[in-house]
Design a protein around this nucleic acid. Structure first.
Lengths: 201, 201, 201, 201
DNA sequence: TATGAATGAGGTTTCATTCAT
DNA sequence: TATGAATGAAACCTCATTCAT
């Protein structure tokens, strides 16, 4: 995916993400909007994509891939589980700061096609993404086990659910800040880590 | 909300939910579809609602209210935290069985307006819903404390996040069953409860 | 026309005229509006008329007939040409005071079907109206001749055009008062009479 | 107004006028009709105008402007009042020949918004038109005074009403030819001129 | 290759008319 | 007889897509 994208395609992807980050609803975006955001003509969009649905789907997937790759690098760069987890929480916060991010939906039960139905036509890409997410999760769990912070008595499924739970708890906090006016992000991060340790320690 | 709805309104609400439960995307539903699903004429829809967006928004909110009320009753009917929690997990599973349920979105960070943008015009109703959800959460936590299963040393925020986390972990399992072909629902429920206890016990 | 109208019909006619006098555009009036103005149900309108167009057409004609009958009586009641002409000008002014009167259109070249296309389906009634208007005109001219104010040297056509002209001049004044802020109605009436005399004296 | 109109706009204006001259009622014209008359697609209409009402209003005003400009030129080209007045009567006749002309409404008391309600949203253009009409009237009166055919003893208002009256008398004749089967257009024109002279000579 | 003017299918909405009560 | 809830035909308008330039 990294390769094989024409310069114009990237411009379109970037334009579209600008729109989505600005809070635009993918179902309500017009081809006109996409062309404008990319700084190209409306017809040009169709020189690179077969339909509006395809542009939007591919743009979302392209950027998710980018974000996940960057995410993995930022996480891998840290040495300890605590730091890695902290970076992951930061990433979640950054993404949820986007009005309707994409990453947060990966975490929820709904999955990405709840975000944009037509993504389900991109099964292959979706599978790749899922794998990338799992790779990150696995990376964390493995590290935790290596550090002896996570004990290996529990099943892999249990460990996964524990991690998901800690992340989802934090996601919920970020998404509903108004419910917790007195809680700082730092506190919430600590709580999430504490939950992780209690579950897996 | 329960009261004050004409018979036809309810018919429209029910028809619409039938569509949504069948996996229809609210953004792609046509007024024609709504009328057909309700077994009425297209024009009749406009005798009761001002626009398509209004019908869909109000139908979603109406049914969420119903579901939450029923949920609370089913939960309240149980005596122990373990049973209450189990019922809540069952509810989540039932809802996520719906192709794109509504309840699961309440749990995710995104919130309901990620499900249907135009809901944000129904602020009042949305606030009511949020309160109902919190009431359920509170009910569980209180019971847990009364049963001495949940200790009161941790902050309320911590308790909330722990519960959210356990629920979200299970939601993730239900939404991504294909990732865990060997795990039964019963096992997943047990894991979720175990997570809850470890976090709050 | 005077007879043969059910009480409800009259109510509908009166309601409609209330709307028209209020400035409503006959093309934009809804059956709902008509029913409301008449204080009856929408369905009832169709117990008395075959279509919306028919109601409106017949209402207009009914009221024009009434107005013309009253007009003739008011004019006939006066003794001298001067007085009769003055009353006619008063009538014109009253009618034009109505936002979009009907009488003024009789005077213009366009004719009544410029006011409401569907009137042309009521040929018979329209002919009756035209005759009533001519009767009034003739009544004035005859009186003028009897009073020796109008000389009989000129052709009947000439006399008609002269009268029409004087009336139209005044109509124009009434319809475009803003063009003549310094001219009083009384002055305009005098000018109109002067024009008549000059033309026919 | 002549300038600043895209080629397509003019095509739409011309198509619409074709419809109106053919006797179409502006309230009953469909966007489809407009597009067909202009030989373009339905959507294209909306590339140039915001709504059906706007197209129709602007088309009417555009053509009235054109007609009035041409009218003024034809009148100004003549040397004597008699000839100028004769040309004006010819113009009236030509316009009234159109089933529901526009010019005739300028002459009647009703004014243009009786022709098409939505014109009243184009106040600026309407004012321009009124001025053009007055300019023509003034041009005639001035010439008459210069030729000593019109004496200057009477007030300007009187002169205006006299001219309006003569024109309206003729308009009435043209609009109601069936009432005067034995009168030729030439005779009617002579009568109108005679009325003018009697009133103003 | 890139464009945006043009298109018309298809959507939402209105409202005259019907008909069960 | 009188009603107004219900209907769906038909209107307006949008916007994805095409294609001549």
């Amino acid at each position: 995916m990294a390769a094989g994208h024409a310069e114009k395609e990237i411009a379109i992807f970037n334009g579209l993400m600008k729109l989505l980050r600005r809070g635009a609803n993918p179902y309500l975006i017009k081809v006109q909007d996409i062309a404008e955001a990319a700084g190209i003509g409306k017809g040009t969009v169709y020189d690179y994509f077969a339909s509006k649905e395809e542009v939007i789907s591919k743009a979302i997937l392209y950027h998710l891939n980018q974000e996940l790759k960057a995410a993995f690098q930022r996480i891998a760069a840290k040495k300890t589980l605590r730091e890695k987890f902290s970076v992951l929480l930061d990433l979640i916060q950054e993404c949820l700061g986007d009005n309707r991010s994409t990453v947060n939906l990966l975490l929820s039960g709904g999955g990405l096609h709840n975000f944009y139905t037509f993504l389900k036509e991109q099964q292959q890409e979706l599978a790749q993404l899922k794998e990338k997410v799992l790779k990150i999760i696995d990376h964390l769990l493995e590290h935790g086990r290596a550090e002896k912070i996570i004990n290996s008595r529990e099943s892999e499924f249990y460990q996964l659910m524990a991690l998901q739970g800690a992340l989802a708890g934090f996601s919920h906090f970020v998404g509903q800040r108004d419910l917790y006016p007195d809680v700082t992000v730092e506190e919430a991060k600590n709580v999430a880590y504490k939950l992780l340790l209690k579950a897996l320690g």
